[in-house]
């Protein structure tokens, strides 16, 4: 009896992630060199608050919860990100430490881009680095807006 063929999941490529669509190919290649594929099961931690932030994460599949851990109180998820989203910008600004925990809510596949490699790519190709930041800033802006509206507790009043 022969079983169905087992297919390995396709290899993840930086260029296939929506965040990098349309950016210069050479820059994408440079920025993504040394990127590491990381897969997580539900409940696995991607990183913890206070850890050194040395990677920029591209989520290809699954869901990741950004959490705040509180002493003697349950963890609170303040946002989830999923397929097609990016995760983390603490690698870009001092003190280069994560401000939240990140936990896989379900099976998740990511590519982790090395922060130093990324910054070197910015230095080598500043115009492309600028375009990269123009894409990252709206992500930061959206998450800031999310946090602000959460403070308003609009559904609670």
């Amino acid at each position: 009896m022969s079983g169905a063929p087992v297919h390995a999941p396709p290899v993840l490529r930086v260029a296939d992630h929506p965040f990098f669509h349309g950016l210069d190919e050479r820059f994408v290649q440079l920025a993504g060199s040394g990127a590491t594929e990381r897969s997580f099961e539900a409940g696995d931690m991607l990183f913890l608050e206070g850890d050194i932030a040395s990677e920029f994460w591209l989520v290809f599949q699954g869901k990741v919860a950004l959490e705040i851990a509180q002493p003697d109180r349950p963890h609170v998820t303040i946002q989830t990100v999923g397929s097609g989203d990016v995760l983390g910008w603490s690698w870009l600004v001092p003190p280069h430490r994560w401000r939240f925990d990140a936990r896989a809510v379900k099976a998740t596949r990511t590519l982790a881009l090395d922060a130093k490699t990324l910054k070197d790519a910015f230095e080598a190709r500043p115009e492309d680095g600028y375009r990269f930041l123009l894409r990252l800033l709206p992500v930061i802006g959206d998450r800031l807006e999310n946090a602000r509206v959460q403070i308003l507790d609009i559904h609670g009043v």
Partner: peptide, 23 residues
């Protein structure tokens, strides 16, 4: 379905409804 904040018992999305529009 998305909520503003949740504990670990919630497996759905967390965030504003506007964050779900792209999907």
């Amino acid at each position: 379905v998305t909520v503003d904040a949740a504990g670990r018992e919630w497996y759905g999305d967390v965030g504003l409804v506007t964050a779900r529009i792209p999907d």
